Computed example of a mutant assay.
Amino acid sequence: MQTVVLRFYVSEKQHHQGELLYEWLLRLGQRLELPGGSAFRAIAGFGKHGRLHEETFFELAGELAVAVEFIIDEQSAERLLAAVGAEKIKLNYVSYTVESGTTRI
Rank of each mutant, 00 (worst) to 15 (best):
Q30N: 08
Y9N: 05
R41S: 11
E23T: 09
M1D: 11
H16M: 06
G45S: 10
E99H: 12
L80S: 02
A61S: 11
G37Y: 01
H53S: 11
E59Q: 14
I43G: 12
L28G: 08
E12G: 10
F58S: 10
I89N: 07
G47P: 01
A42I: 06
E23M: 07
E54M: 12
E33M: 09
E23K: 15
F40V: 12
H53R: 15
A65T: 15
Q17I: 02
M1I: 07
L6P: 05
P35T: 09
T56F: 00
A86N: 13
L34C: 03
A42W: 02
L28F: 06
L32S: 08
F58K: 00
E99S: 14
I105V: 12
K13G: 11
Y22L: 00
T97M: 04
S100E: 15
I43A: 13
A82R: 15
L25W: 04
G47L: 03
H16F: 13
A83F: 01
W24R: 02
V68W: 02
G36A: 05
Q30C: 06
I43S: 12
A67N: 07
T97V: 14
E55L: 11
F46L: 12
T103F: 15
S76I: 03
H53Y: 11
A42Q: 03
A42C: 07
D73C: 14
L28M: 14
G50K: 01
T97F: 08
V84F: 06
Y22H: 15
T56C: 04
Y9L: 14
F8I: 00
Y9K: 08
F70Y: 13
S38T: 15
S11W: 04
L34W: 02
S100N: 11
A77Q: 10
F57Y: 07
L21C: 07
V68K: 01
M1G: 15
Y96R: 10
E78L: 10
R51E: 13
M1H: 13
V98L: 12
I43F: 09
W24S: 03
S95N: 05
Q2G: 04
G85E: 07
Y22T: 00
V84P: 04
L20K: 15
W24V: 01
H15A: 07
L21S: 04
I43E: 12
E54K: 12
L80G: 00
R51V: 15
L32A: 09
S11L: 05
I71H: 09
Y22M: 01
Q75H: 13
G85M: 03
R41L: 14
T103P: 04
K13W: 05
I105K: 11
A77V: 12
Y9I: 10
K88V: 07
A82L: 13
F70K: 06
R104I: 14
L91N: 03
